[in-house]
């Protein structure tokens, strides 16, 4: 269980994370979704006590990470698979990690076996492929058999086989009752990996919901409307749902209002409609729609 309350991080004038509150429950894979630069990594570093929040708190099973004694027994985190000395062997890397938390050497061999790296345990980690590095990183998170696991963009740059392996691995961890929190900027990936979603954009919470609900909300109820009286229509529709401009032509994209309701509304006010079409947008489009404002605003900053 991870609970963030009003988590905020400012770097000078840059607001990386702003008043972020969420909870991550055990027994499920929770996706942490947002475009690049949305503050996902910063949030993860704050959860793990690497960065100090400007304000707000984040607790793991009711405790601040910095107050955990031998934290590897409670929390396993993989923020960057390249956090390994390239000239150190995979085994030596895990050995010092294990030793720091009083974990016996035999566990090192167990986790190497678990991720399938036993054969290359004595090879220097600098020569590992990205997929092997990810496996080594995951082995490190499992050393203390923790209840809470965090992964930052674990499938970035992996081949399909590696992605599948990691996805199944995370499901297994969640099925064992652990809290699994995994970040990504790809909704399509999260749709297949995560049961719950925490969506952020520009450091702020956009949604915390189940993945299924998020996809339904995001993908359904979008209606494209074209009309010669677009401005008038925009005002009227804004009272009923969320209205945004179509990216491709002079039209409105309406969220949360049925096509029939729009038609009736237009008829009541004598507005001519040239097009009224329910859209079955792709997931990525929906996600981009949802986080668009935040990304745009970020880019103009």
């Amino acid at each position: 269980m991870i609970e963030a309350t009003g988590l905020t991080k400012h770097y000078g004038a840059t607001k990386a994370v702003e008043d972020l509150s969420f909870t991550v429950s055990p027994g499920r894979v929770t996706g942490f979704l947002g475009p690049n630069g949305a503050g996902k990594s910063t949030t993860m570093r704050m959860i793990l006590g690497l960065d100090r929040p400007t304000s707000g708190t984040v607790l793991i099973d009711g405790k601040n990470y910095l107050d955990l004694h031998r934290p590897l027994d409670r929390v396993g985190a993989l923020l960057d698979a390249k956090w390994v000395h390239p000239n150190r062997s995979a085994r030596a890397h895990l050995q010092w990690l294990a030793r720091s938390n009083g974990i016996p050497d035999r566990r090192v061999d167990e986790v190497l076996d678990l991720v399938g790296l036993t054969r290359v345990a004595k090879r220097r980690a600098g020569g590992f492929s990205l997929g092997m590095s990810q496996r080594l990183g995951i082995a490190g998170t499992l050393l203390g058999d923790p209840d809470v696991l965090l992964f930052d963009e674990p499938v970035n740059g992996l081949d399909p086989e590696g992605i599948l392996w990691i996805r199944q691995f995370m499901h297994r961890l969640a099925d064992e009752g652990r809290t699994v929190f995994v970040s990504s900027h790809l909704l399509s990936e999260m749709a297949q990996t995560a049961q719950d979603l925490i969506v952020i954009g520009r450091g702020r919470l956009i949604a915390q919901t189940s993945t299924r609900q998020f996809i339904e909300d995001a993908a359904e109820d979008t209606v494209k409307v074209r009309s010669p009286q677009l401005d008038r229509l925009r005002e009227l529709l804004a009272e009923h749902g969320r209205v945004s401009e179509s990216a491709t032509d002079a039209a409105l994209v309406v969220h949360g209002v049925e096509a029939s309701a729009i038609g009736e509304l237009a008829a009541r006010h004598g507005i001519t409609l040239h097009e009224l079409s329910p859209q079955l947008g792709s997931l990525e489009e929906a996600f981009m729609q949802l986080t668009k404002e935040s990304v745009e605003y970020h880019a103009h900053d």
Partner: peptide
């Protein structure tokens, strides 16, 4: 980056 791994292990 092993310093971060160290600080994760010994906060």
């Amino acid at each position: 980056g092993t310093i971060k791994a160290t600080f994760l292990a010994v906060p």
